[in-house]
Design a protein around this nucleic acid. Structure first.
Length: 753
DNA sequence: CTTCCGTCACTTTAGACAGCATGTC
DNA sequence: CTAAAGTGACGGAAG
């Protein structure tokens, strides 16, 4: 099918695709057109990665906008993918269509979403927008759900599922385009969404899969290629072989530590293939990596990159990840060892994919559990970039003949497991039942069950009583915590319930926060508040290492008065352990708010820079929510919460609170200004510009901006010289260990390891 | 005396969404 | 109920 033959698209679109080199539709795309994507028909496309799914979505969105003058919504599973997709849709702007991105940490500049034609957002953000009454939802003509197989995910799947159900029930005749990896039961998804199914395993570039064992590579087509390991291990041999053929390699491993260790060894393999120009470019990337953070992780990564290799995992800061992804896509970095972050994230095709570890530690089963077939296939899907590689190759590693056979059976020849809804899990339902009632989507028990009947879960189960029973438990929980009132089958959210729904909190988190705030009413300490939000299910737990238990038990007793609520008994195994784990997180946050260096924190808690940023971000969000809850429930801790929040947000001690409120002043500049004797915004307003200039190490532009933001009557620096008596920056910078705490709470931080 | 290598016991274990209001060095 | 790679301490052999 030729792209020029398509109709129902805005003027110029087909020409645009043709000039972008797309003339003929790929078979799955043609099948989607035949199924009716261009005429408003809902479609589920279950096709391999990189086989043109995005175009199917684009055709659906563009034709829907053209025909109905409505809007399109593209739901992505990760924030990082939101910007990637938006960039792909940027070309639509020449057809007069506005594309906007909306995620938790990023909002398109000023233009309110309702004015856009295409909105790209995460499923949580869409859910949140619905909860907060975004009325443009009613103007939707088409919604795209990318990676819809993620409804199977225990944590986040139900959000996607409920969001799709709500959108469909709210907007009549909404066209749904659901994109999925190849899965066993795409037909069930299609039935649920009342959509046509396009199921295909066609790929634009051939994918060969297989297993390496001994000195040979066995492929799925039955062929066997000699690939001796010699003095190298299997991974190194496979990577060296790819690099010799001018390709790139992506190695999936099962832990961060393994990823880092593997990168160190891969560096020895990649280094020999580098040209002088490569070296120079890599050196630049390495410098940028070092500039992102000065932790050990950052240094190790930079060192690997200098040799043409890298590792990739969630302990990396965002900047690290982007740098690695970009350089790998450009094939400047030739080999990357990664945890599954890279399998699900942004597009990073590689000629060869090596799945080194196919088992992963799983606490719930008490040992190593095999990866799911779907997961391994997602990794496989990263192999081969059309136009660059002759074909993609995905390889598992076997250490014995038995393992060779098992891997073929389990992953090479096997179909992925069917996708199953996880909606009946109580934590997911807690949140969604409350929001469904709070937004007025349903008003009664009966209406709620009817709505839940519209979900994938309902369409997959033979036993509706299970969902009803869990719903009952959840309603009881919400009622008991005063988020919701039940009266003769009618359901109504309380003001607190409305707020919890709007703040996007797990109701259990809200309940914990409310209890804690009530127990510590007045002026709770920052540590107390950090501990409180860290106890919440919305905060990911830090792992307790050997020795941590005694360390934090001691701290728990030393600072018991600060912790909000009753410390659980030491004999209540799990509960006490959770308490300690939350305390560990709280201490990390406190250290950050005491201006401890990032690398000291990383070392002390055994985490990477990405983990620190993540914890801080979550704490910031939860404290903001806590402040709103305190206001709603008239608990008098709002100002203490606010202070604790601003301190983690900026990573500052209490004496910088005022300074950091000035635009262009963050943790570092505030500290410099403070060292130079400025304590408040008012001090700066009346300051001698020369002294401010000296404090900011002579940076003219910065100083002018800072003075202007502070409201200085004459921020112009013409003819002003830096004052020589004012301490300059080298005296300041962040400290190794903080001096005594200004609030008098004890802080002998250097003493535990 | 230092360096290198092998052994062995011990330790540790993936990921990442949301609010709100604008901007670090 | 289940594993396995990496790490670091230790000791013996080589330099």
């Amino acid at each position: 099918m030729q792209i020029e033959d398509l109709s129902g698209l805005p003027d110029g679109v087909t020409e645009h695709f043709v000039s972008a080199g797309i003339e003929e539709l790929y078979p799955p795309q043609a099948a989607a057109v035949e199924a009716g994507v261009l005429s408003g028909e809902s479609v589920v496309a279950s096709v391999p990665t990189a086989s043109g799914k995005t175009l199917i979505a684009q055709l659906g969105m563009l034709s829907a906008i053209h025909e109905t003058d409505g809007m399109a919504l593209y739901i992505v599973p990760l924030r990082a993918l939101a910007s990637e997709k938006a960039a792909e849709f940027e070309a639509f702007e020449q057809f007069g269509l506005d594309v906007a991105v909306s995620t938790g940490n990023y909002e398109e500049d000023g233009d309110w979403l309702g004015n856009a034609d295409v909105v790209v957002a995460t499923s949580e953000k869409v859910d949140s927008l619905i909860r907060n009454g975004a009325d443009w939802i009613d103007d939707l003509a088409c919604v795209v759900a990318d990676e819809v197989h993620l409804v199977d995910d225990r944590g986040r799947g139900p959000t996607l599922e409920v969001t799709l159900a709500k959108l469909r029930s709210r907007v009549p005749n909404l066209q749904v385009v659901a994109l999925s990896a190849t899965i066993g039961n795409a037909d069930e998804i299609a039935d649920w969404l009342e959509a046509e199914l396009v199921d295909s395993d066609w790929r634009p570039i051939e994918l060969r899969t297989g297993v390496h064992y001994g000195d040979a590579l066995h492929l799925d087509d039955g062929s066997t290629t000699e690939l001796p390991t010699g003095s190298q291990d299997q991974t190194e041999a496979l990577v060296a072989d790819t690099i010799a053929a001018d390709g790139s390699a992506l190695v999936f491993v099962n832990s961060r530590r393994n990823a880092e260790a593997a990168a160190r060894r891969l560096g020895e393999v990649t280094e020999s293939a580098l040209s002088a120009a490569d070296r120079e470019a890599l050196q630049e990337v390495a410098d940028e990596i070092r500039a992102v953070s000065d932790t050990e992780t950052s240094e190790d990564l930079a060192a690997a990159v200098e040799q043409g290799a890298a590792f990739h995992h969630a302990g990396l800061a965002r900047g690290h990840r982007t740098l690695v992804e970009d350089a790998f896509r450009e094939r400047l970095i030739r080999a990357v060892s990664a945890t599954p972050t890279l399998a699900a994230g942004v597009n990073t095709p590689s000629r060869r994919v090596v799945v080194r570890d196919w088992r992963r530690y799983d606490g719930s089963t008490g040992g190593m559990a095999p990866l799911s077939t779907l997961e391994v296939h997602q990794m496989f899907g990263r192999a081969g970039r059309p136009g660059r590689d002759p074909h993609g190759e995905a390889v598992l590693l076997a250490k014995s003949h038995d393992e060779l056979e098992e891997l073929f059976d389990r992953y090479v020849y096997a179909d992925p497991e069917p996708v199953r809804s996880k909606l009946a899990a109580e934590p997911a339902l807690r949140s969604h039942v409350l929001s469904t009632v709070a937004t007025g989507f349903v008003h009664s028990h009966e209406g709620l069950l009817e709505f839940l009947g519209e979900t994938l879960y309902a369409s997959q189960t033979d036993d509706p009583s299970r969902l009803e029973a869990v719903t009952e438990d959840v309603l009881e929980y919400l009622d008991r915590n005063d988020f919701l009132v039940r009266e003769n089958g009618d359901l109504r959210a309380t003001p607190a319930g409305h707020l919890v729904s709007q703040l996007y909190l797990d109701p259990m988190s809200a309940a914990i926060i409310i209890d804690g705030l009530r127990a510590g009413e007045g002026s709770p300490s920052p540590l107390g508040l950090y501990h409180l939000v860290s106890r919440t299910p919305d905060m990911y737990e830090l792992y307790l290492k050997s020795g941590d238990e005694s360390t934090y038990t001691e701290i728990a007793y030393e600072r018991e008065r600060e912790l909000l609520g009753q410390t659980p008994s030491e004999f209540a195994e799990g509960e006490f352990e959770d308490w300690l784990s939350a305390l560990k997180t709280a201490k990390l946050l406190e250290d950050w708010a005491e201006e401890l260096d990032e690398d000291r924190i990383a070392e002390r808690y055994g985490v990477g820079p990405g983990d620190i940023r993540g914890k801080v971000e979550t704490a910031e969000w939860l404290l903001q929510a806590a402040e709103r809850l305190a206001g709603e429930l008239e608990i008098s801790s709002a100002s203490a919460i606010r202070e604790a929040r601003i301190r983690v947000e900026h990573g500052i001690r209490a004496d910088l609170l005022d300074l950091v409120g000035i635009r262009h002043v963050g943790r570092k500049r505030a500290r410099r200004l403070r060292e130079a004797g400025f304590e408040t915004r008012e001090d700066l307003r009346q300051a001698d510009p020369g002294r401010v200039l000296a404090a900011l190490s002579g940076r003219q532009k910065t100083t002018e901006k800072v003075l202007a933001s502070a409201g200085h009557p004459n921020p112009d620096l013409d003819g002003v010289e830096a004052d020589e008596d004012t301490p300059s920056s080298q005296h300041t910078s962040t400290r190794e260990d903080p001096p005594e705490n200004s609030q008098g709470t004890q802080a002998n931080l250097g003493e535990f390891e």
